[in-house]
Design a protein around this nucleic acid. Structure first.
Length: 443
RNA sequence: CGGGACGUAGCGCAGUCCGGUAGCGCACCUGAAUGGGGUUCAGGGGGUCGCGGGUUCGAAUCCCGCCGUCCCGACCA
């Protein structure tokens, strides 16, 4: 790697630590375009793992993937009054195509409600067409004033689910089901505990009836909005005339939901588990759950340890684990350790002549503690235990930290003020379980 | 859009006050040795000094203008 100095510590400057970690772990890089980022292979691999898990969860709950266009006619955005008010200020607009001025400017989607519900109007005729449960994986563009790698970039990757239902109750059920699905993913895959709740009117999605959110505590004692699920009511159905004929022959507007999580989750992962050495990636989302480092002096030792390393990799891969053998020559083992630790690989297996002689691999955990020998004989079982233990351990650690910092919704304005005065680690970042209390606090 | 810092090799920086041959560390390339926690030695390649103008015999350095980046705030997946 290009830099072998220590990271700025979290305690010294959390923002600097965050930026340096991303560069060191080669997760992303700044692009020539202001506010945009390049997601490098190490970072994209984490996003791919997230996509894989979420995509399966969506499909298991009856959703299908589709793809809608990047460009939206500008007039579409204006059809829902609150929606245009919320998003128009931060859109990128295409005015020319093929060297000619366009008759109607095209908005680069900041979100896809309008283009999707314009299509739903064509596809939905009967109550038999409902519910319609569609998700898309896409990029969107929002012209933010201030950007940060993964957390808020001008262009970002996300999934957006868009559903249509016959009744308000069904739409609400879907909205809350997805909120729970997000929570399961964030806790069980990312090891990131979240509080779920309803946003206030002022922080509600532009055009929604109700917005629910997952909020997670980061190590700087700030909360991160990690995902949102909206009950859109009939606002978009009316704006785009999405009607169906009910069983008794009446024409009714559908009830919609939309919900999304983005590459911001990668930022949340970093800020939840990262330490002053670099990234700490939960095993379920790690590109590699372990890296095997062969250690040798002579060519003969090199041949032996590499052969054993490859055999162990094959065994572990057969059992479904993701393993990498770092066979690069000319780098001392210690240099490899530092590099893989910065990248967050959960487990490391060292295999040197002594290990081969003892019939073990020496295992080191990214989360610290003494190294341990894993006998070749039952390495697959032991490895699986370690993976599970680390996955659960990371969540437990994050929960304990949250408890220690008292992240919870204030129950009254006075409680909020008291916490601020005491500086007791109370976290308030635009989330509150009770909208009424939050409105009161804002005053 | 307000406040602050900055822009010199891929990265991090010195040099700027006081104008005079473009430097250092890391990374990279070649060779040899080394190898259980960031190897060592030797050799080597790489630069419109952010851009434009001005002053000057001469500008990374002084003057004017512009552009860009990062950090902190107001707004947001």
């Amino acid at each position: 790697m290009a830099d072998n100095k220590a990271l700025t510590t979290r305690a010294a400057d959390f923002s600097a630590w965050y930026n340096e970690l991303i560069m060191r772990a080669e997760l992303a890089d700044y692009s020539p375009v202001r506010g945009c980022m390049v997601i490098r292979p190490n970072g994209y691999a984490i996003w791919e793992q997230m996509q894989r898990a979420l995509d399966q969860m969506f499909k298991d709950t009856g959703h299908q993937n589709a793809y809608f266009p990047l460009f939206i006619p500008q007039s579409f955005l204006a059809k829902e009054a609150q929606h245009v008010e919320g998003f128009a200020p931060e859109t990128a607009v295409v005015t020319h195509g093929g060297g000619k001025l366009l008759e109607e400017p095209l908005v680069v989607r900041p979100t896809s409600e309008t283009i999707i519900y314009s299509m739903y109007a064509k596809w939905i005729q009967s109550y038999r067409d409902l519910p319609l449960l569609i998700n898309q994986w896409a990029n969107v563009v929002r012209w933010e004033l201030r950007t940060r790698l993964f957390l808020r970039t001008t262009e970002f990757l996300w999934q957006e689910g868009h559903t249509a239902h016959a009744t308000e109750a069904e739409a609400e059920e879907e909205t809350l089901m997805i909120l729970g699905l997000y929570r399961t993913f964030m806790e069980q895959w990312m090891g990131m505990p979240v509080l779920t709740g309803r946003k206030t009117d002022s922080e509600r999605f532009a055009g929604a009836l109700r917005t629910y959110s997952c909020e997670a505590l980061m190590q700087d004692n700030k909360a991160l909005q990690a995902g949102t699920s909206h009950n859109l009511g009939q606002n978009f159905a009316r704006a785009f005339d999405v009607q169906y004929q009910s069983a008794d022959g009446a024409m009714e507007y559908v009830w919609n939901t939309s919900w999304g999580v983005s590459t911001r989750l990668v930022g949340g992962l970093i800020m939840t588990h990262g330490d002053d050495t670099g990234l700490v990636c939960p095993p379920r989302l790690a590109q590699y759950q372990a890296v095997i480092v062969p250690i040798y002096k002579t060519d003969e030792e090199r041949g032996t340890t590499l052969e054993v390393a490859q055999r162990i990799r094959a065994d572990l891969q057969k059992a479904g684990f993701r393993i990498h053998v770092d066979a690069r020559d000319g780098l001392k083992p210690g240099a490899k350790y530092y590099e893989w630790e910065a990248r967050g690989v959960p487990l490391r297996l060292e295999i040197g002549p002594r290990d081969v002689g003892n019939g073990v691999a020496t295992m080191a955990r990214r989360t610290g503690g003494p190294k341990e020998p894993l006998p070749f004989a039952d390495i697959v079982a032991r490895f699986g235990q370690e993976v599970d233990r680390m996955q659960q351990g990371l969540l437990a650690t994050a929960i304990a930290r949250r408890e220690a910092n008292s992240l919870r919704a204030p129950k009254s304005k006075q409680e909020f003020i008291d916490f601020l005065a005491a500086d007791g680690g109370f976290v308030y970042a635009g989330w509150c379980g009770d909208p009424a209390v939050e409105e009161e606090i804002k005053q």
